[in-house]
Design a protein around this nucleic acid. Structure first.
Lengths: 110, 110
DNA sequence: ATAATATACCTAGATATTCTAGGTATAGGA
DNA sequence: TCCTATACCTAGAATATCTAGGTATATTAT
């Protein structure tokens, strides 16, 4: 995830992608743009990050994929979240809450 | 940083360590325990993560180090944050705020 | 007294994640 | 016609963290 200092949120990328897919099925390129838009340009996934990630989510059965052509003939691969994916999302969200609260506590000091 | 799913917050570990050192100088083992305590056991740095990290912070002049023996003869290496370290901490905190707000926005949905 | 555990430092190599830097192909606009 | 945007992909590099060791002394339990 491209940010000023090159760092990212580990495991978090999958969580964000699953969160988008919870709303509706989307194709890869669209996920990148949505994520950028909704974060107000805070992060923009690199294609080299997203596509392999989608493949691993599919392998783990957290999403399913189907190909579809646009009227103009362009190929798109749509991803849809599965029941297991929804469960995984809830878990990751819970972890994120716990984690960010702990970080906040430490930053706030003694 | 040991968590249930093995993931961590990249760059975040340095931020947390610097946040502790802002309060007072500390030695490595102590940092591990303080971090665990203040996060309510949410994370516990592995020694193999912390010691190399402290060395890189020292190399980058964000901290300075000095050795000291306890009355009983045990060696401890104390780390103190530098002015550059304080600046780096403020930057990382700002990034964290921006980042966590963006994540929250995406998790909250459209 | 001795054994086991805790303290305290360290490193090398494996693993996981993301990035860089390419590649392919089509659509649409200048 | 050429350039940019769309849309997919992968290989290899870079980075961060973990695993799994190692050394040594102090403290606690047997």
């Amino acid at each position: 995830m491209a940010r000023s200092d090159k760092s990212a949120l580990p495991g978090g990328t999958a969580m964000l992608v699953l969160a988008l897919l919870k709303e509706r099925e989307m194709y890869g390129y669209q996920i990148i743009e949505e994520l950028e838009k909704r974060s107000n340009q805070v992060f923009r996934l690199q294609e080299g990050t997203l596509y392999p990630l989608l493949h691993s989510l599919e392998r783990d059965k957290l999403v399913t994929a189907r190909d579809q052509e646009t009227p103009s003939g362009r190929r798109r691969r749509y991803y849809r979240i599965t029941a297991a994916g929804l469960r995984a999302l809830e878990e990751k969200k819970e972890e994120w809450q716990v984690y960010s609260r702990a970080v906040t506590a430490i930053l706030a000091g003694a």
